[in-house]
Design a protein around this nucleic acid. Structure first.
Lengths: 348, 348
DNA sequence: CTGAAAGCGCTTACAG
DNA sequence: CTGAAAGCGCTTACAG
């Protein structure tokens, strides 16, 4: 009796859900015909279709997805799989945007999104098992560190997957969409150069992440193009945390006290850089210009507000979903690189 | 052929999944017996069970959830439903913690979590329809604004739901778990008082949110207890945004220039308060103490670091899942209020 | 404790 | 274009 709202009227009763059989009887056709209109309406006369549509409306029928899946072999659902250091991802506002946009893009196709987290080996096994069993038609993968075993296992399982970011060091045939990290870095460094800076340092991300590698490459390329000498004293590495940015900046200041700009591979680290600079008595942007990456809330929250590089998260999600659907429809894997955008603010 | 990794060996073939039938044959028992060991192992001899277990291991069998659901009527999955101003929630780090913990707590019970977002009326309809169709066994609801129609409709649909936070202005019989907003506010104000502050102002949240109401009540109660006069000049209201905190502080400073402390109903607004205070030349905490609420990353990112109130998000999620499971098992709705914790830092 | 059998609600060839 | 029928993989009374 818990399940039964006793309100009178049109509340569809929970006790005997209306089935395709009821609709067929109501419409005066066979169940096969109802099913046909449900599945695209091919080979159905306009009259029959109209009758069925009306019956569906009258009865409030909604398909039983389990019965359908049992026979089609599809689950009509998609997994959003997050592997490893999830903590970091859940604190990353970009991740939230990604998750939300994917959910909505999928919802437009009437595909529920199953959120799966695989931080531990145990969770990894469980999720892989679930996916491997065909309980899901495709997976949207967020996995950053190189050599993630999940990538290979997913590939083996033969399930369509689209990754967010290029899976490092993987030969798996999986689709991915990524922001143009290198291009973004180039744009930022060019911007710094254009504003007159000539001793441009950088705080890179970890070498086993795409952002760590590509943004550093972009930095080096642009320096060379501008005719600025390469100087290892100007390069430090952080781990994307604010504290690591602070430490890196201290090292930089020590090795190259004459630096007049820092390109930082993430906004969070850039905040740390700002802290160190302030403590060292350098004014931003007067003495030192600071450029971040991500356009996260941190960029707006910091003082001065950070000039940064915006990644097109909305488009990334849209593309991921589009590509996954394509894979699910049998298309071959592909890759898409999306352009970033410079967001000038007060720190440069 | 896309679905077939051609690797040799034990990769379970995707083409003909092993069914309960295969296991039965392998174990030398009937399908009914296999099913019985799958479902708790009651009424099965130890010998039969051992044979079935071995056969399952040998064949790599994993149950077809669609077939099971078709007959049991359960979906063995749960929805995490987010209604309205989703943007705000997705930027709220607390929300991320909640989502992650719920996912994991559910995973421990082998229950997948479907993420559903109902920001627009259209999405609301679609999701309600999905849930109403019984595609999900229960729902974890995150909905803040009072009078959310979703609450009532969920209740009508007769599906078990547990809300995060007390659903305002609803008579629906739904379970909920909430942090002790009032108690947290009291603790903060008492802390401010204990440090010698006597002109304690507050920036409250919107009046149609539990946090807006309860934290303000806690503030008033504590002032009275401490024998401090109620003074409306000391009360301002914001909308949880940083900018609104700044504006509110300006108003406060104008109406009560002698204030020596501000209890702010969220860390984000507290950042805005810090901005205004700095611009007004007041030192924190020397001239004015500032207390926040949430213990969000913003509290750590701000300078000085914010003294704040931590909500027990881990426990909140655990409780929500536990209560939902209880509801799904037929128990009556209930409510749980969890204690908060003062986190002293540099701003007081 | 165990097997044979019915049936969950749908889709899909197969004949017409 | 349409109906009758088989069958998807499971669970669950029902007899033994």
């Amino acid at each position: 009796m818990t399940r039964d709202s006793s309100r009178a009227g049109r509340t569809e009763s929970r006790r005997r859900p209306v089935t395709i059989h009821d609709v067929a009887r109501e419409a005066g056709v066979s169940r096969g015909t109802v099913s046909r209109v449900l599945n695209g309406g091919h080979y159905v006369s306009p009259a029959a279709r109209a009758a069925v549509d009306a019956a569906i409306r009258r009865t409030g029928y909604v398909v039983n997805r389990h019965a359908r899946s049992l026979i089609t072999g599809r689950s009509d659902s998609v997994a959003f799989l997050l592997t490893e250091p999830q903590e970091r991802f859940f604190e990353d506002p970009n991740f939230s945007v990604l998750l939300r946009s994917c959910t909505q893009a999928l919802a437009d196709r009437d595909l529920p999104l199953l959120l799966m987290i695989a931080g531990t080996e145990d969770e990894r096994r469980r999720n892989l098992r679930y996916i491997g069993a065909g309980h899901v038609d495709g997976v949207l993968l967020v996995s950053s560190h190189s050599g993630d075993p999940v990538v290979a296992r997913l590939d083996e399982a033969g399930v369509p997957v689209v990754a967010c970011g290029k899976p490092l060091g993987q030969s798996a045939r999986i689709s991915y969409v990524a922001a143009d990290d290198r291009g973004g870095a180039r744009e930022m460094v060019r911007h710094l150069y254009a504003s007159g800076r000539r001793r441009i340092a950088t705080v890179a991300g970890p070498a086993d992440t795409p952002g760590g590698v590509e943004r550093l490459v972009g930095y080096h390329e642009t320096l060379a193009e501008c005719g600025l000498p390469a100087d290892e004293a100007l390069v430090a590495v952080g781990d994307y945390s604010r504290a690591s940015g602070e430490t890196a900046a201290e090292r930089l200041l020590e090795r190259a006290p004459d630096l007049d700009a820092v390109f930082v591979a993430s906004d969070l680290m850039a905040q740390g850089v700002l802290d160190a600079l302030e403590r060292a008595g350098r004014r931003v942007p007067e003495d030192v210009a600071v450029g971040g990456f991500d356009d996260s809330p941190a960029a707006l929250a910091s003082r001065p507000r950070l000039t940064t590089i915006r990644q097109p998260w909305d488009r990334i999600s849209t593309e991921m979903v589009r590509m996954l659907l394509a894979r699910m429809a049998g298309e071959e894997p592909s890759a898409v690189i999306l352009p970033t955008e410079l967001v000038p603010r007060e720190s440069t």
